[in-house]
Design a protein around this nucleic acid. Structure first.
Lengths: 181, 181
DNA sequence: CAGATAATTCTGTAAATTCAGAAATTGATA
DNA sequence: TATCAATTTCTGAATTTACAGAATTATCTG
């Protein structure tokens, strides 16, 4: 593969793989994603195998995982019966989808558990007050954060980008703020 | 330890430990943190060992790690020469510190690498245009995100809480928005 | 300063994760 | 419906990571 011959492409892919391992995604998954992200055209599984030196099976698993994150999709290339794959090119979109999936997998179940614990502790006289307080607080915190996320994700991307470009200047527009920096 | 006898405390700690493994922190570190978070009083290392059934060495390592995140600190308890530890109780503060540390450890080096790659690709005629474009875009994206974070973290916590409670309603206050929901 | 206790670092082992190859399945074509 | 390519699933091996215990270093007390 010609793309992979480029040392900077290789550096990107290797680094991306390491990043993955620090963020709860396995190295192969992250590398496959990096390769697809850099690639101009849809790539088939066999080409990924050759480019990254992974086993066919791993590539298959990685592609499946990336598709559940919805940051890679299967496309059909005319005159070729093999499946080809492309990565989401819009980075903002990519980030949103990863966040959505991780929330679904990990945060939501955590909130559910905390709700249960908090609920039980509230009606348990024998429970140490401090324990109750801490669990309730954590539940409230994550729920608030989750609720905020659910709201913000409904905003159009353009609004989000505007907000981000504003940076700390958002504060200016809040009601009750004397407009200064 | 009396706190740990409570089944809900145990459930919290175990779940927190699993969460850790999905977010790039090892189980012991997350469990020690959970225990300290739930505990009313400062806890010494030996007590943690007994409560969680970990080796003394692991507890030592975990405490060190939590201190580099600055979400646990050492406190002195009168009349006891052993070190005792307490977790940050303000959850918002806790989150900010974790984010800060992970950015420092993982995001900043990534941005630095991308800057280097993007720079080299810009002055490399032989590089595929698409590769250059993708790397440059990723660099810009992460830089923007990083810059946004650096700005937002300077805002007072109260402002941040206000912003969060506002949720999607922030959009209303942006210049050029016809105030509706 | 000697003895004791606490804390950290080092090292071998256990556990968990990742991954390659084999086997099984799917699905397209003739 | 038989065949062949493509893809996925399963399983054992290899690598990596987490951890317990031993050894070392630091700190406190009398």
């Amino acid at each position: 593969m010609t793309l992979l011959d480029h040392p900077d492409a290789k550096a990107f892919i290797l680094h991306w793989g390491e990043m993955g391992t620090h963020w709860g995604v396995n190295r192969s998954v992250a590398q496959v994603h990096a390769l697809l992200y850099l690639s101009e055209k849809p790539v088939d599984a066999e080409a990924i195998v050759e480019a990254l030196g992974l086993a066919r099976s791993n590539v298959s698993t990685a592609l499946k995982e990336l598709q559940t994150y919805a940051i890679v999709r299967r496309v059909h290339v005319e005159g070729d019966r093999r499946d080809h794959f492309v990565a989401e090119g819009d980075l903002w979109e990519m980030l949103m989808r990863i966040v959505a999936e991780r929330k679904r997998r990990e945060i939501d179940p955590t909130i559910a558990l905390l709700a249960e614990l908090a609920d039980r502790l509230r009606s348990d006289d024998t429970a140490p007050a401090h324990l109750r307080d801490r669990v309730v607080r954590m539940h409230e915190f994550l729920s608030t954060l989750g609720g905020w996320y659910e709201q913000v994700r409904t905003l159009p991307k353009s609004t989000l980008v505007t907000l981000m470009k504003l940076g700390s200047k958002v504060a200016r527009f809040l009601p009750g703020s004397k407009a200064k920096d």
